[in-house]
Simulated assay, not measured.
Amino acid sequence: MSRNDPPFADPAVAACFQAVPEPARSGMLALRRLIFETAAETPGVGALQETLKWGQPAYLTPETKSGSTIRIGLPKQGGYAIYAHCQTSIIPDFRSLFPDDFAFEGNRAIHFPDDVPPPAEPLRLLIRNALTYHLRRKQGAA
């Protein structure tokens, strides 16, 4: 962990990260840092809750209910990944902007090779869209 990493509030989440082998752990921690940074700089998101869902670190917006859950974890084929709810348009919307830049798993995930850090700038858009998914849908319906 670097000095910029937020502390773990949940010991089970900390243990989950600790159990991930390097170099995937570094990539997952970089995604975690990016999720917290993006949440902090995005109006309407509020405090994040970091918990485990399906054994993977998951990030929710319980205070504002502005977003859809984001998870990070280890796909079966290796590497590490960021996941969004497959019944949302989060991944398809992102894929329409970056069709050839990422390894997509259907409507639910983006995979990264173990030894490649996640590209922060394009992923901020994905994370921001996930953390404001419900907020944006409400505004669109108004």
Rank of each mutant, 00 (worst) to 15 (best):
R3C: 04
R3K: 11
N4V: 10
N4T: 09
N4E: 14
P7E: 13
F8D: 00
A9Q: 13
A9L: 15
D10M: 14
D10F: 15
D10H: 11
P11N: 08
P11R: 14
A12S: 11
A12E: 14
A12T: 14
A15R: 08
A15I: 08
C16P: 00
F17K: 05
F17H: 05
A19E: 03
A19H: 03
P21Q: 15
P21C: 11
P23D: 12
A24M: 09
A24S: 14
R25W: 10
G27D: 07
L29D: 04
L31S: 03
R32Y: 01
I35S: 01
A39K: 03
A40C: 04
E41A: 02
E41M: 08
E41F: 01
P43L: 02
V45I: 06
Q49V: 09
W54I: 00
W54D: 03
G55P: 03
G55R: 00
G55Q: 01
G55L: 04
Q56W: 02
Q56S: 09
Q56F: 03
P57M: 13
Y59D: 06
Y59Q: 01
L60T: 10
E63C: 07
S66L: 04
G67S: 05
S68F: 05
I70W: 03
I72E: 02
G73F: 00
G73W: 00
L74S: 06
P75A: 00
K76P: 15
K76T: 04
Q77E: 06
Y80R: 01
A81Q: 03
C86A: 15
Q87T: 13
Q87I: 08
S89K: 10
S89E: 11
I90Y: 05
I90E: 09
I91T: 07
I91W: 04
D93R: 09
F94M: 14
R95Q: 15
S96C: 09
S96M: 10
S96G: 04
D100H: 11
D101I: 00
D101R: 05
F102K: 02
E105A: 15
G106K: 00
G106V: 01
N107E: 05
A109D: 07
A109P: 00
H111C: 12
P113A: 15
P113G: 12
D114W: 01
D115A: 13
P117F: 07
A120N: 03
E121V: 06
E121N: 06
L123Y: 03
R124P: 00
I127K: 05
R128S: 01
N129M: 08
T132R: 13
T132K: 11
T132V: 09
Y133Q: 01
H134K: 05
H134A: 01
H134M: 06
L135F: 11
L135S: 12
R136C: 04
K138A: 14
K138D: 15
Q139D: 13
Q139K: 15
A141M: 10
A141V: 07
A142I: 07
A142P: 00
